[in-house]
Amino acid sequence: MTDLRFDGRVAAVTGGGRGLGRAYALMLASRGAKVVVNDVGGSLTGDGADPGPAQQVADEIVAAGGEAVASTDSVATADGGAAIVATALDAYGRIDVLVHNAGNVRRGSLREMSHDDFDAVLDVHLRGAFHVVRPAFPVMCDNGYGRIVLTSSIGGLYGNHDVANYAVAKAGVIGLSNVAALEGAAHGVRSNVIVPAAVTRMAEGIDTSAYPPMDPDLVAPTVGWLAHETCSVAGEIFIALAGRVARAVIAETPGVYQPSWTIEDVATRIDEIRDFSAPVVFPVVPSGHNDHIGYSFAMADERSREEHVASHG
């Protein structure tokens, strides 16, 4: 198979100075992309700033013969997000790929988490995603091409202890990606979600001694494909963890129809309602929202027809 390259493409990677983001930036650059390496250089909790990490990765790319510029603007503000996209446009005249990877962690139980810690994490992960997608999306649509990769997590899919802020933010980016996928479909813009896991500083405080190999380089190829022009999907969620690559979906049971319900009816039929023996999945693109509604309407219409036939049999 011919190598999948990014020659002529411009990519912006948030949180690109360390860990997963660094792996993404280096991979994209090694395959021909011009890269904006964005990283505010803060601590794990999001405090402070250091221009070093972003500049070091940009320098590493240039030293290897690639093209890159550093950005230290913060995704946590609308102005910062706009500045990141503007850096790509000013330096290279376009933006083709946007990977939002920037993150921070502030742990605390749900009963004790402060509003400040909740907001600080949403500002980077969720609002940060919007802050960069919002200025990049219309540029991509006007150019007729774009690839957006937003970062969720296992916590966003399934929750976890002591990370209500993180879980909420990571679940939220799935909704944002789905809308970008729907609205971008007619303009050559595809948006998807990566659910990565790697042993980086984000795993600080977790005992990883028994983990299998979980290097960022095991995640980067999936992000690379989602960012490539040959990416054939949109509105999907991909997991990359310890060498396993998989797709996650939101699925429903077929459900049960009645023309009216009581609390007791729900209690009586709960096993049927929850029966996942024949799951139903509505792909986001082209019309998952409407397909979901149509599926329910069809059950009601079918029962009405059955009752009509029975009454005139």
Rank of each mutant, 00 (worst) to 15 (best):
I273E: 00
R274E: 10
R274K: 01
R274Q: 08
D275R: 02
D275I: 02
D275W: 05
D275C: 05
F276R: 12
F276L: 14
F276T: 14
F276W: 11
F276G: 04
S277L: 08
S277F: 08
S277G: 15
S277Y: 03
A278W: 09
A278K: 13
A278Q: 15
A278F: 08
A278S: 13
A278D: 15
P279L: 00
P279H: 03
P279Y: 07
P279N: 04
V280N: 01
V280S: 04
V281F: 08
F282D: 01
P283I: 06
P283C: 00
V284M: 01
V284Y: 05
V284F: 04
V284R: 00
V285A: 02
V285G: 03
P286H: 09
P286G: 01
P286Q: 02
P286I: 05
P286F: 04
S287F: 04
S287A: 14
S287D: 13
S287G: 08
G288R: 08
G288K: 06
G288W: 03
H289T: 09
N290W: 05
D291M: 02
D291T: 03
D291G: 02
D291Q: 09
H292E: 06
H292R: 13
H292L: 12
H292D: 08
H292C: 06
H292I: 04
I293N: 10
I293W: 08
I293S: 10
I293L: 14
G294L: 07
G294P: 05
G294W: 04
Y295W: 14
Y295I: 11
Y295D: 09
Y295A: 11
S296C: 12
S296P: 04
S296Y: 03
S296R: 14
F297V: 07
F297E: 10
A298Y: 07
A298G: 03
A298K: 09
A298V: 00
M299D: 05
A300H: 13
A300F: 10
D301N: 11
E302I: 01
E302N: 12
E302L: 12
E302H: 14
R303M: 05
S304Q: 14
S304K: 15
S304W: 13
S304D: 15
S304L: 14
